[in-house]
Computed example of a mutant assay.
Amino acid sequence: MTDRTMTESAPTIEMSAWSGRTDPEPDSLRWHQAIRPLDDLARPAGAALLGFACDAGVARNLGRPGAAGGPAALRRALAPLAWHRQGPAYDAGDIACEGDAMETAQARLAERVADLLGAGHLPIVLGGGHEVAFGSWSGLARHLEARYPDNRGDTVPRVGIINLDAHFDLRDPAHVRSSGTPFAQIADACQDRGWPFRYACLGVSRAANTRALFARATELGVLVREDREIDARRLDGIVRDLQRFMARCDHLYLTLDLDVLPAAEAPGVSAPAARGVPLALLEPLIEAVRDSGKLRLADLAELNPDFDIDNRTARAAARLIHQLTLDVR
């Protein structure tokens, strides 16, 4: 466990985004009243929100830039929500990407995530493009390497990645690393370490992923559920599939690309979904992960306030964080 305080190289914490109404009744706290700056990693463990202000990966992937503004928009949307947590929550600041320096930003994110995990916090990273995933996972990997020093046989960590997304993001990183390559990069990193690659991608749009990507997912043994499969009638079965997947894992990393939601619910993303999976059907999946006791890290990606309408996307993302952190200590 680390007990170092924040240094000049650590993210800047700007608490001015946390504002909103207050209520006179007792026990009526909202997020903006309860959250505190994480100015010292020795604080009691809680949920730690860390921004990743970067859309270099989206630009490289020929998407709509603007996701660098996602962390600030998400904080503003989360601030007025009612506070129902039992444990504390902290704002750990932002990692900002300078220009196209995506890899540098990912490395800084990985370092900060590892620090937060070492201090016992649950990091929740606010994207940013989905290139955030490689930085998030790299931080978890760095943290786990210290706990599994032998790194062989039964002593390797069994990390399950659960991605709620319209896209596999398994493009070949040999061409260009972008928001479309993080899970291919993670698969390669797992192979280099001798770790199993356990990946579930739920909400995939067949119209938005080529046959080559579906073939790559099959080759890697990915648990795939398409958007058209996730409906109210089949939801219980999909939750059971997810629980079986989680049973084979010791640690879980949840990553949520907001373009998994229908465009009407999430217009402010790089690639709005023609169909998508409604928020009401995503929440039971997120709650299953939350309640597993194995969640170590989560992130949300692709919130682009430049294209949002009435803050719909930001509000949906805030609602998901609210659900994810309920009863998490």
Score class of each variant (00 low, 15 high):
Asp250Ser: 10
Asp169Leu: 05
Arg152Gln: 15
Ala288Gln: 04
Arg290Ala: 15
Val125Cys: 14
Arg112Thr: 15
Arg234Tyr: 13
Ala263Leu: 02
Ala67Thr: 05
Gly46Pro: 09
Ala77Trp: 03
Gln191Gly: 10
Arg225Ile: 02
Arg233Ser: 14
Trp195Asp: 12
Ser138Trp: 05
Arg234Ile: 01
Gly70Arg: 03
Phe245Glu: 07
Arg85Glu: 06
Ala34Gln: 12
Leu281His: 14
Arg64Tyr: 11
Trp195Arg: 02
Gly46Asp: 14
Leu285Cys: 03
Pro26Leu: 06
Pro182Phe: 02
Ala280Ile: 06
Ala34Ile: 01
Glu25Gly: 06
Arg228Ser: 13
Ile162Lys: 01
Ser16His: 15
Arg108Ile: 00
Ala271Met: 09
Ala317Phe: 12
Ala263Thr: 11
Ala301Phe: 09
Leu326Phe: 14
Trp31Gly: 01
Leu261Ile: 12
Gly293Phe: 11
Ile35Phe: 10
Asp169His: 08
Arg21Thr: 13
Asp150Ser: 07
Arg30Gly: 15
Ile35Ser: 00
Pro123Gln: 06
Gln323Phe: 07
Ala208Arg: 06
Thr325Val: 14
Leu213Lys: 09
Leu281Asn: 03
Pro88Met: 00
Ala274Lys: 02
Ile35Val: 15
Lys294Ile: 05
Gly237Cys: 05
Gln106Ser: 05
Leu261Gly: 08
Pro262Lys: 01
Asn311Ala: 15
Phe183Glu: 03
Ala56Tyr: 05
Ala318Ile: 13
Leu41Tyr: 15
Val58Thr: 15
Leu261Trp: 02
Leu281Phe: 06
Ser136Leu: 13
Asn311Glu: 15
Leu297Gly: 06
His167Leu: 09
Cys54Phe: 05
Ser292Val: 04
Asp188Gly: 08
Arg275Lys: 01
Ala264Met: 11
Glu283Ser: 11
Asp23Lys: 00
Gly160Ser: 01
Arg85Leu: 03
Arg64Ala: 13
His84Ser: 12
Glu14Ser: 15
Arg36Val: 07
Asp172Tyr: 09
Glu229Cys: 12
Gly237Thr: 10
Val222Lys: 01
Arg193Asn: 13
Leu140Cys: 08
Ala92Ile: 11
Ala17His: 10
Ser9Pro: 04
Glu111Asn: 08
Pro149Lys: 00
Phe134Gly: 04
Ser9Met: 12
Pro182Leu: 03
Leu324Gly: 00
Gly70His: 08
Arg75Gly: 08
Asp169Tyr: 09
Thr22Pro: 03
Ala107Phe: 03
Arg228Leu: 12
Trp31Asp: 06
Pro267Tyr: 02
Cys201Asp: 05
Gly203Pro: 14
Asp231Ile: 10
Val113Leu: 06
Val224Gly: 01
Arg43His: 09
Ala174Asp: 15
Glu8Lys: 12
Arg329Glu: 12
Asp39Ser: 14
Ala174His: 14
Asn151Cys: 13
Arg240His: 12
Thr2Phe: 00
Phe52Met: 12
Leu41Ser: 10
Asp23Asn: 02
His322Asn: 12
Pro272Ala: 05
Ala288Arg: 00
Leu220Phe: 11
Asp299Pro: 04
Ser9His: 06
Arg315Asn: 14
Val58Asn: 02
Leu170Gln: 03
Arg312Ala: 14
Gln185Pro: 04
Asp291His: 09
Ser205Cys: 10
Arg198Tyr: 04
Ala89Phe: 09
Gln106Phe: 02
